[in-house]
């Protein structure tokens, strides 16, 4: 089975505003507002470099961010990607 490839719309299709502990995202294409917690904005940023499977995405996140807890990281990333997909902020290639 080949790994799923994820795509996010280009950064200029959304407006992100950080609040205390959460971030607001206005998705210009749908007109919807999303309230997300870390690491959702970081995942969207990492996908800004181009489409990626979960492993590539994790490598980008490791490169740009200090990751404190490695345990269950891959499962957590899959869960966050599924949430972003359900919200319409990420889709599969």
């Amino acid at each position: 089975m080949t790994a799923a490839i994820y795509i996010a719309d280009p950064p200029d299709t959304r407006r992100l505003i950080a609040l205390d502990g959460v971030a607001l995202i206005f998705h210009r294409l749908s007109g919807q507002t999303h309230i997300v917690a870390p690491p959702a904005p970081e995942i969207l940023d990492a996908l800004g470099e181009g489409e990626a499977d979960a492993e590539t995405l994790l490598a980008r996140l490791r490169r740009d961010h200090e990751i404190a807890d490695e345990e269950g990281l891959s499962e957590a990333l899959d869960a966050r990607l599924a949430e972003l997909e359900a919200a319409g902020l990420v889709r599969r290639a």
Binding site: L19, D20, V22, L24, G31, I35
Partner: peptide, 21 residues
């Protein structure tokens, strides 16, 4: 919290969605 306040104000607004960005 700011997130909670934001959500409650979107619910308290009658034209938030219509005004878009």
């Amino acid at each position: 919290g700011q997130g909670e306040a934001f959500v409650r104000l979107t619910q308290a607004s009658t034209n938030y969605v219509a005004l878009e960005e």
